[in-house]
Amino acid sequence: MTSIDKNPVAPRVIVREAAAPRPRWQVWLIRPEVVTLLLLVIAAIVATRLSPFFADLGFILESSTYYIEFAIVALVLTIVIISGEIDLSPAAQMALSACLFGTAFKAGAPIPVAMGVSLLSGLVMGAFNGFFVTVLRLPSIIVTIGTLILYRGLAQVLAGDKSISGFPGWFVGIDYRMVGIVPVPVLVFIAASILLGLFLGITIYGRQIYQIGTSEIAAIHAGIRVRRIKMGLFIASGLTSSIAGLMVASRLGSVRYDLATGGELTMVLIVMLGGTYIFGGRGSILGTFLAAWLLVIIATGMTVANIAINAQLTIMGLLLIVSIIATNAIYARSQR
C-alpha cells in the first residue's frame, strides 16, 4: 500500500499546478469553501434581521442538534462523493439501526449490547452497499436507492408503526448534556470534522481517495487498491449512520421506522453546499463543516421567523440546485 507513495507530496503538487495559472489571491478567493463561508455570513445577517429572536448562541446551538446528526453523516458522505461514488441510503440506515437498537432493548438486552447490535448492523449495511458497488460493480447511485427503500422497509417490518421507548434515563437526552453551552452532539460533530479533515488532508489514504475520484483508471494503474478503499468508505458510512441513529434515539428517547425520513436530501444538500464536486475528485471536510452551519442557520432562521414550511421546502430545493451549478462553474473555471 505504502510503496507507491514514497513521496506523499507528489500528487498534490500535480493537482495544484494544473489549477494555478492565475494570481494567488484569485486561487484563494474563488474556492467553494470561501463561497460557503460568505453565504454563512450573509445567512446569519439575514436571519438576524428576519427575527429579533434569532441572534442567541444558546438557541442556535440547541437548534443545531436537530440537524447535526445528518451533518455528521454528511462528513463521511463527503469522502464517499470525493471518491466518485454516492450513498443515498444513510438516512434509512439510521432508521434501521435505531429500530434494531430499540428491538434489542425491548427483547431484554442491556443498553450496551443493544448499542453493539446497532453498530454491527451499520457495518453490515455498509458492507452490503459496498458489496454491490465494488464486487458486482453496479452504480452506487441506483444501488443505494434500492437499499434506501430496502433498509427503511426492513425497519418498518421490524418495528411496525409503533414507537419503541422506555430507555433508561442515562441513555436519553444526549442533546441536553452540555460542555459549557455546547451540546455534546455538536462536540461530536466538531471532533469528527477535525479527525476526518486530517484523514483526508494529510494521510496517504486521503490523497489516494482524491486520486480515485479524479481518475479511477489512473488510480488503478498507480497501484491504489480502489475496491478496498471504496469498500472501506461504504462501511464507514454505515457505521457513522448507525452512530447517528443512536444519537437520534437518545435525543428523542424513542425510535420509529420513519425516523430521519428524507434525510438523504439534507445530507446531499450539506455536501453540495460545501462545494464538493458531484463527479468526484474535489471537495473538502472544511467545506462540509461550514455548510452544515449554513444549513443550521438557514433552517433555524426561517423557523424562528415563522416562515411557512412551503417556503422552506422551496428554498432548500433551490439551494441544492444553485449550489451544484455554482460549484460546477467554479471548478470548470479553475480547470482551464
Partner: peptide
C-alpha cells in the same frame, strides 16, 4: 438544468423534488 449545466440528473431532480413540493404548497 440537467443539460445546460451538465449536471447529474439524480441530484438535480432530488433538488426539484423538494422545490416542486414547496411550490405546490405555495
Amino acid at each position: 438544468v440537467v443539460t445546460v449545466f451538465k449536471l447529474p440528473s439524480i441530484i438535480v431532480t432530488l433538488g426539484t423534488l423538494s422545490l416542486y413540493r414547496g411550490l405546490l404548497f405555495i
